[in-house]
């Protein structure tokens, strides 16, 4: 193989790798929308804990979640590290959400400082996962 052939092959690998990587950027959008939905849900059910509000917020959230899951399942590419990134993001979010909910209802009912902080903290794991999925090396080439 000649030098120019090697350069051509490397350039081709870079181009194809970049295309594939860029198609995995949907996960950042997923993370942003999921974070926005979960932030709104947490703040709503924490600051306005009536049966009607909780029921309505949960119903809207479930519809949004179904749309997000459908969107994710229809994507042709899973970004690098998707499995463990998404798994850790959901575990992290679940832990923060659980603590915010149970501790909040027990000790800080309708306290904006607690609920807004908890809701904001819950967006960190998915946002970090989305950012990591986007910034990872495009390819080994």
């Amino acid at each position: 193989m000649r030098r120019d052939e090697a350069l051509d092959a490397l350039e081709r690998a870079e181009t194809v790798g970049r295309r594939a990587h860029d198609r995995g950027r949907w996960y950042m959008l997923f993370a942003v929308l999921f974070s926005a939905a979960t932030f709104t849900l947490t703040v709503t059910i924490g600051l306005f804990p009536t049966t009607t509000t909780i029921f309505t917020a949960m119903a809207v959230y479930l519809v949004l979640l179904t749309c997000l899951i459908t969107f994710a399942l229809r994507q042709p590419v899973q970004p690098r590290g998707y499995g463990w990134l998404h798994g850790l993001a959901m575990l992290g979010w679940g832990a923060v959400y659980g603590v915010t909910l149970f501790v909040g209802y027990a000790f800080f009912p309708e306290d904006p400082a607690w609920w807004v902080s908890g809701a904001a903290l819950g967006t960190v794991p998915p946002m970090v996962a989305g950012w990591l999925a986007v910034r990872r090396n495009r390819s080994a080439a």
């Binding site: 081709r12 690998a13 870079e14 194809v16 790798g17 970049r18 295309r19 594939a20 990587h21 198609r23 995995g24 042709p76 590419v77 899973q78 970004p79 690098r80 590290g81 998707y82 499995g83 495009r138 390819s139 080994a140 080439a141």
Partner: peptide, 9 residues
Amino acid sequence: AALAAVDRA
């Protein structure tokens, strides 16, 4: 090269 940049395609 395409598969190296993703987990699955």
